[in-house]
Design a protein around this nucleic acid. Structure first.
Lengths: 222, 222
DNA sequence: CAATTTTATACACATGTTATTCACAATTAA
DNA sequence: TTAATTGTGAATAACATGTGTATAAAATTG
């Protein structure tokens, strides 16, 4: 698992750098933004996994920043953790929290923050376990396959077929199972269809990843 | 190895009894439940090894029943095999399948069901890698045989034949039994067919693993 | 919305594998 | 020894899969 990138957004310079220091010491890659605008501009280039977002900021407040971020489907897998001051109104945050994120109250205790961050990331990584298997990594959200780090765009059916096989490495999927999962039960396709898609995958990923088990089906090997 | 207990859960009375009849004929102990609630109530007292669980049922559907069962750590070694109708949505089953179970599509052919059940049970009994029997180990998921740790790919019939013999080391299977299990009861093959397959296995695994019992059949020795 | 490109499927045929048969040799048990 | 049974080599049948190409369907683009 590669290091997680965290974007710290707070108008207070001291807090920014305190957090940066602590998080980097714990192995995260960090970057900082002083306000909502900077944050939004930075997302594209920095592509953080998680944003620590101060709620109370001059100009655009954290809630609004969050809404803007989440409104772009491209960012739907970016996690947001609010930093809230004591006495802050939690009602709005509560709503967002239902979306899966979290918040930490100031004053921030590094240990608390850290465990909170780890919890969020763990939750997230459980959601879509994208381990690398045999040089092939699948990103279900971006709908893209990484072959030795290099992005390979696969058409829908090929992607789904690979996902299935990849989800259980070394497990032999019967042709019937493959049909049911990738094509669905009500669709009838010729019996060469699976083979053709397997061929395409082998062309794109290299022949050695998918192994035929004659009379049964196919398996993705590690 | 004691007889395996199977709990059959389906709302259709005919199917329940058809399955019960077939499975008992094949040597399983069975019990039936007509819906999810009955099933769950029955688990504690009956303690099945495997549950055949219809997906589409009035009230609680099979998926939910499964989730409930699996949520209790006590039941974690109960196997679940879904019975699915054509046109059923497999997306949820896919996830559960990753847990190690399987499914059979309706209309259920007794022979398919039986071989599926046996595969699941074998897979299971193979899970905790106990002693290797005479240097030969079978991996039912990968559909390979490990000969001193080295993978050997066997064709379907050879694999099934070996699986059968291997499942009960030192037990002599009569030729008739072998035919029934590997070839099925309605298929007629010449009387040299078994021998030929045995020969192939001996070639691939070494002659000393399978012993002929003249006039009776064969056994896999440890 | 028509043109174009991409993706999905079909199909015929090549290829390779697996299953089976058969004639006959070897073995074994009585 | 003999009759039954099993082992074996080689031929063939049956089958499953790979592949080139055609076509259909879907998505994209101007």
């Amino acid at each position: 698992m590669s290091k997680n990138k965290i974007l710290i957004v707070d108008d207070d310079d001291d807090i920014r750098h305190l957090l940066k220091y602590n998080l980097e010491k714990s192995g995260f890659i960090t970057n900082i933004a002083a306000n909502g605008l900077e944050c939004i501009e930075m997302i594209k280039s920095y592509n953080p996994d998680l944003i620590l977002l101060d709620v109370m900021m001059p100009g655009m407040d954290g809630i609004e920043v969050c809404e803007r971020i989440k409104s772009d489907p491209q960012n739907k897998n970016i996690l947001i953790c609010f930093l809230t001051a004591r006495n802050e109104d939690y009602s709005q945050i509560a709503g967002l929290e239902a979306g899966g994120d979290d918040y930490v109250s100031k004053p921030i205790k590094p240990k608390v923050l850290l465990s909170r961050i780890n919890a969020i990331l763990r939750r997230k990584s459980n959601e879509n376990p994208k381990e690398v298997k045999n040089g092939i990594q699948i990103n279900y959200e971006k709908y893209v396959v990484l072959k030795n780090g290099e992005e390979v765009q696969l058409p829908k059916k090929e992607f789904e077929l690979l996902s299935l096989l990849h989800s259980k490495p070394n497990f032999v999927f019967r042709r019937e199972q493959i049909l049911n999962h990738v094509w669905g039960t009500d669709i009838v396709v010729g019996d060469r269809t699976i083979d053709v898609h397997i061929r395409k995958l082998r062309e794109k990923l290299g022949v050695h990843h998918i192994v035929t088990v004659k009379g049964i089906g196919y398996k993705y090997i590690t």
